[in-house]
């Protein structure tokens, strides 16, 4: 084999490898990204409420091993000592316990109000309205020791600007179901 032929050979094989590498990038770049970000994507999906599941008014939905139903959503007008143009909003739920392992299934339980623009309100600590003794909230329910078949009444209180009261809808999420969450619809929807 002459030196020239050898050189030509090398050139050809280099071009071949260059072409192969270029094609392989199409696979390797997504693969590397997937391998590297697997844990982070898992954490992102496990910590955030991304995909809503709409629940029509009056219906109940299986979520975190129990059946959730929105019973009431109303404003508590006429309170003093509040920031101007704000309204306390009460959300009442009735939950029929299915799987009683709430400490695992309801971990990270979060009830928020979502309006038409996607703004989210967490429960407030500014307003404290008196609630009946048998009504708890999401976190206290976890430690209530409720058994399968029990029905729990839950209430959360929010503080919402007046302009948003028309469009807010309650949503429920727990760590065991994320990134999916429940979005309850009202009677008028």
């Amino acid at each position: 084999m002459t030196a020239e032929a050898l050189d030509r050979n090398n050139r050809a094989s280099e071009r071949k490898w260059r072409r192969r590498s270029l094609w392989s990038l199409l696979v390797l770049i997504p693969l590397a990204l997937a391998v590297e970000s697997y844990d982070s994507v898992k954490a992102l999906l496990g910590n955030n409420d991304l995909f809503p599941r709409r629940v029509a008014w009056g219906e109940s939905a299986r979520f975190g091993g129990s059946d959730w139903k929105l019973t009431d959503l109303r404003g508590a007008f006429g309170m003093s000592n509040l920031p101007p143009d704000s309204v306390p909003v009460l959300a009442d739920f009735q939950v029929k316990i299915g799987d009683p392992d709430l400490q695992k299934l309801w971990l990270g339980c979060k009830i928020v109000l979502v309006d038409k623009d996607g703004r989210r309100w967490s429960p407030t600590s500014i307003v404290s309205l008196k609630t009946p003794d048998n009504v708890g909230n999401c976190i206290s329910a976890i430690f209530s020791g409720a058994k399968s078949g029990d029905t729990l009444d839950l209430r959360e209180t929010f503080l919402v600007p007046k302009e948003a009261t028309k469009s807010v809808r309650p949503s429920v999420s727990v760590a065991s179901e994320r990134p999916r969450f429940l979005l309850f619809q009202l009677e008028k929807d």
């Binding site: 392989s24 990038l25 390797l28 391998v35």
Partner: peptide, 19 residues
């Protein structure tokens, strides 16, 4: 002249190194 090969190798290294 060599960037496709080099980048492919770096990517292979990342994938296997991480695994």
């Amino acid at each position: 002249r060599f960037w496709p090969q080099l980048v492919a190798m770096v990517l292979l290294g990342i994938v296997f190194g991480d695994l």
